[in-house]
Design a protein around this nucleic acid. Structure first.
Length: 234
DNA sequence: CCAGACGTTGTT
DNA sequence: GTCTGG
DNA sequence: CCAGACGTTGTT
DNA sequence: GTCTGG
């Protein structure tokens, strides 16, 4: 997927939809969230056994990392390797799965760099399958909580634009992904597939989204492409 | 064995 | 921390 | 993904 | 031209 998402509705609404019982994290609306920024993440609190929400850095920091920042991009994890590769293996094995909460994401068409917004159709929230991790600096004790978004093959709507898309989860799959209902590893891994294209929508947006300093509601607005561009939408 | 990587998307 | 490449 | 930078000395 | 930061 791309390196940008948006989240632009009040937390109260999110908490209601996701049935989050924990405290409200200090989230503010953003139409341009990039890697290294905070993402809103929901997960099952291991002791309390209810859903909590938290801001976590987008870009997983493995617990064994010497530094909190590295040159290796970890904001996405390919579903094909997430179970085995060093960076994601431990969180996967330990079931540190989470829901990454967004209102959608952006993709750029290569030919003309035209950005498009993508979201689940008919739903306010576009929920992505994620993993989370906690990193602690051995000397200073500094703690960084971070997350990654799992990617998979694109569905037929997105395929003309990109060869990858984030794993999106329908509400019926949330309990299994969060570990609230029993499921085998194979059943859980089976959730990592393209979201149905008939439940996905896509529309062109302003190129201003390319600059992270631009961050206002109009970034997610549908724009009118010139007739010529419309014609070669795909 | 030790040193160095540990990753993604989208390209050429 | 653990796997991979040399 | 795009926008913006594009370096050094000295230290471990 | 290519890498880094957001």
């Amino acid at each position: 997927m791309c390196g940008r998402v948006r989240l632009d509705i009040p937390f109260a609404e999110i908490a209601k939809t996701l049935n989050i019982l924990g405290d409200a994290p200090n989230t503010r609306a953003s139409w341009n969230i990039a890697p290294t920024h905070d993402m809103l993440v929901a997960y099952l609190h291991p002791e309390r056994q209810y859903r909590v929400a938290e801001n976590m850095r987008w870009g997983m920091v493995p617990r064994w990392a010497k530094e909190a920042y590295s040159k290796y991009p970890t904001h996405n994890a390919r579903a094909e390797i997430v179970r085995t590769k060093a960076t994601f293996r431990d969180p996967w094995r330990e079931g540190k799965r989470c829901l990454v909460v967004t209102n959608g994401f952006y993709e750029w068409r290569e030919r003309d760099k035209q950005p498009f917004a993508v979201a689940r159709a008919k739903e306010n929230l576009t929920i992505m399958a994620g993993l989370r991790e906690i990193w602690t600096d051995k000397s200073s004790g500094e703690v960084v909580r971070s997350c990654t978004v799992i990617t998979t093959k694109p569905n037929s709507l997105i395929e003309p634009y990109h060869d990858r898309m984030p794993v999106l989860l329908a509400e019926a799959d949330w309990p299994k992904w969060l570990g609230e209902t029993p499921a085998s590893e194979a059943e859980i891994y089976d959730l990592l597939k393209p979201y149905p294209s008939e439940d996905t929508m896509l529309w062109p947006v302003s190129k201003r989204v390319g600059n992270v300093r631009n961050n206002d509601p109009s970034l997610a607005d549908k724009i009118e492409l010139a007739p010529e561009e419309l014609q070669r939408l795909i």
